[in-house]
Amino acid sequence: MSAVPGQTVGPFFHLGLAYDGMNELVPPGHPKAIRLHGHVYDGSGAPVPDAVLEIWQADPQGHIPRRPGSLRRDGWTFTGWGRAATGPDGHYQFATLEPGATDTGRPPFFAVTVFARGLLDRLFTRAYLPDDEAALATEPLLTAVDPARRPTLITTREPDGLIFDVHLQGPGETVFLTYPRLRDAWS
């Protein structure tokens, strides 16, 4: 079967995709809440004010959530999924919990999807937690990419959470991912 091609999210995605609480996987006042945030940049280094990011993650125990409720958050259910639009300065942020490892010895990561006006198809990437250096050093994806580009896949820790910038193009271009059945659908 032939997969339907993608198209840009366009300039007016806020109308259809934005909703209250979309970027708060937990309330910001939650005792274990962290802020995952950063900027989206274009190939000239300018901020992208009309991008939208989605994250999908395990809970702190490394369990993959199988619960609805991302669109109408109840303040208690951790669904593992959220969406954030960039502001005029290209900045986005999520309030969430740190994901745990779903597989022993592997470094936890957020699965990230990026959309923007001007971007004709969505992009996939990973945002790894930076702490377990031994696990990061042997992580298959990270050892397979150009060492100079490896840091684009790893968040930076700060007191309140984690920073993850996305460079759509240019120096420091983020490593974006494809998957076997995605590639094969287009071959």
Partner: peptide, 9 residues
């Protein structure tokens, strides 16, 4: 300026 130039990994 908004498309990656490196192939997807």
């Amino acid at each position: 300026l908004r498309h990656p130039k490196q192939p997807a990994h």
